[in-house]
Design a protein around this nucleic acid. Structure first.
Ligand code: SF4
Ligand code: SF4
Lengths: 166, 166
DNA sequence: GAATACCGGACTAAAATGGTCCTATTTGAT
DNA sequence: ATCAAATAGGACCATTTTAGTCCGGTATTC
């Protein structure tokens, strides 16, 4: 459980890199692949997915490329990951197409629903500005403007949990 | 991401049912399969895994079966799930066999490590007594003794997050 | 010694994953 | 006009993971 797909990781890396570029500039896939060491074919697919999700914008033709559609602090972690994960739920019955036939008699369904909602809520407050380097927030508690919908997870990340790195 | 494997669900269901039985009694696989509607062959494998993990105890021979090895409040969610999940990390590089060759140059590794540690810590405080029915804690805030290592997730579950069920 | 019931490996079918390749189509520069 | 750069997107394949079945073996009770 927990683990994100490879494409999701690539998506996170891509957004991370695009966030470092100038806001009005676009970067080509080949360029981005060179920086990130991600296979360019895969990266191309990932960026197409991110565009469909409205996370990045694309400029076609020569000199074109990709850029973020909005500020990193306005892009949620789940926005980036969603297009590449068929399941964002802890159990099948909590997905839009709840395809578990045992759903009615299952005594695990209700507690799992609570658990599911909690996990999703935690991640909901997690924005991509926490992932752009340098991770000043990770070593010293570099503070940025705290958003309104703060959660425990995001707060913890922002304060920098150095001890968590063992 | 997030989703637990089918076997893990079966394991959770099994523990849930065993928790309702008398503490000194054991239940056979066939019996348990009848109650839970889980294929008995699969359930057998799952219970074997749980035994190896020390979560349940087994009594062989006629009249034998399975029972919990200790109190539900002393069994962590991750104890039940771990044997059936090859990955309990958000990213590959955070697993015991960190098998990502990109690990050195990856700018996503450090923030993911923090995220990973947080998620694991949240689930660490989640015990199986919160999953046994009836879910009084879910509808009315039925309070049991709060354990020492309480976490936000467990606390939220215990208080009952009815709103989370939409 | 026979029935009960756990133990555990081998095996298979299906699905998800990760990646490659190929062909449009759009756009800017020569 | 033409060509090259660069996104758009589908088809395809290899590998791994998942889910489940089957079967012989062992321990225990009656
Ligand atoms: S109904 Fe029960 S078995 Fe089915 S997906 Fe939900 S929790 Fe799992
Ligand atoms: S090193 Fe980077 S790409 Fe590799 S598993 Fe960790 S986060 Fe993912």
């Amino acid at each position: 459980m927990f683990k994100v797909s490879r494409k999701s990781e690539y998506a996170l890396i891509a957004v991370q890199h695009l966030a470092r570029a100038q806001p009005d500039r676009v970067v080509s896939v080949a360029d981005l692949a060179g920086q990130t060491q991600v296979p360019s074919d895969v990266l191309a697919k990932v960026l197409q997915g991110l565009k469909r999700a409205g996370v990045v914008r694309a400029v076609k033709g020569a000199g074109g490329g990709y850029g973020l559609a909005r500020a990193p602090s306005d892009i949620r972690f789940l926005d980036v990951v969603q297009p590449f994960e068929d399941t964002l739920a802890v159990v099948s019955c909590q997905m839009p197409s709840h395809d578990c036939e045992r759903s009615e008699t299952c005594s695990l369904r209700d507690p799992m629903a609570v658990l599911n909602a909690f996990v999703l809520r935690q991640f909901d407050g997690l924005t991509m500005d926490l992932f752009v380097a340098p991770h000043h927030w990770l070593i010293s508690g570099g503070r940025s403007a705290a958003p309104a919908n703060d959660t425990s997870l995001a707060r913890r990340l922002r304060q920098g949990e150095a001890a968590a790195l063992r």
